[in-house]
């Protein structure tokens, strides 16, 4: 009881600026894909259409938020020696739940996403956030961090999905933007390499637009 009290007090105390900073870090300055370049495999695989990219983004936001929150809740009673196993187990619970629900109510989408929802379990972003943030920070802040990182991932996926669907198939969310008679499907953008190029160019543009980072001190 006292533990939870302490937790909520610290969280209220730090609400304003720290919260905003966490969101900014997750979405922009420390974006998991653009800056840390992790979680790439799923980003390559599911971005051929905007719709799948969006669903995958939502899946990651949900699982990241929930697992960060719960991990932070039990961080003080988790024995350090088995913390990694606990992290993985916690992530898998949420991911499998999401996968099952998707299969039950949104079958077509689940078929298109294939194994990639299940593979969120091994996604480096989640593991990294749990290990690097949720273990040291109070639950609500961890929840915000998980959400922010999920959002950062989802935003990049949405942009890449937009570009690939538009260039690759000339449509957006399944509606034809360019008539089929004029537009020729570009297979490279329909297939995974298109995501490589789009993401590489995106990172290039973001890096070129933002001011040069100060060199890290060793």
């Amino acid at each position: 009881m006292t533990a939870t009290n302490r937790v909520s007090v610290t969280c209220v105390g730090c609400a304003g600026s720290k919260c905003r900073e966490t969101i900014r870090a997750g979405v922009h300055t420390n974006n998991p894909i653009l800056v840390q370049v992790i979680g790439i495999c799923s980003a390559l695989a599911v971005t051929s259409k905007l719709e799948t990219a969006l669903v995958m983004g939502i899946a990651l936001i949900l699982t990241a938020t929930l697992s960060c929150f719960f991990m932070s809740l039990i961080r003080n009673i988790t024995p350090p020696r088995i913390r990694m196993i606990v992290e993985i187990a916690l992530i898998s619970v949420f991911v499998i739940c999401f996968d099952q629900i998707l299969k039950a109510v949104y079958w077509d989408m689940s078929k298109q996403l294939g194994p990639y929802v299940g593979l969120i379990i091994t996604n480096c972003i989640l593991m990294g956030r749990l290990e690097g943030f949720a273990l040291q920070n109070p639950p609500l802040l961890s929840l915000v961090d998980g959400f922010a990182n999920g959002l950062g991932y989802a935003l990049v996926l949405a942009i890449v999905g937009c570009v690939r669907e538009l260039v690759g198939s000339g449509s957006l969310l399944g509606f034809a933007i360019l008539p089929e008679s004029v537009y020729q499907t570009n297979l490279l953008f329909v297939l995974a390499p298109g995501a490589f190029f789009t993401m590489g160019l995106l990172i290039w543009i973001v890096n070129a637009a933002s001011p040069p980072k100060p060199e890290k001190k060793p």
Binding site: S92, I96, C97
Partner: peptide
């Protein structure tokens, strides 16, 4: 802890499945 945590996870998963 491992036993308790494992049981909880298993229960949740079984229910959802």
């Amino acid at each position: 802890f491992a036993a308790a945590f494992g049981t909880t996870c298993a229960l949740v998963l079984t229910a959802v499945s």
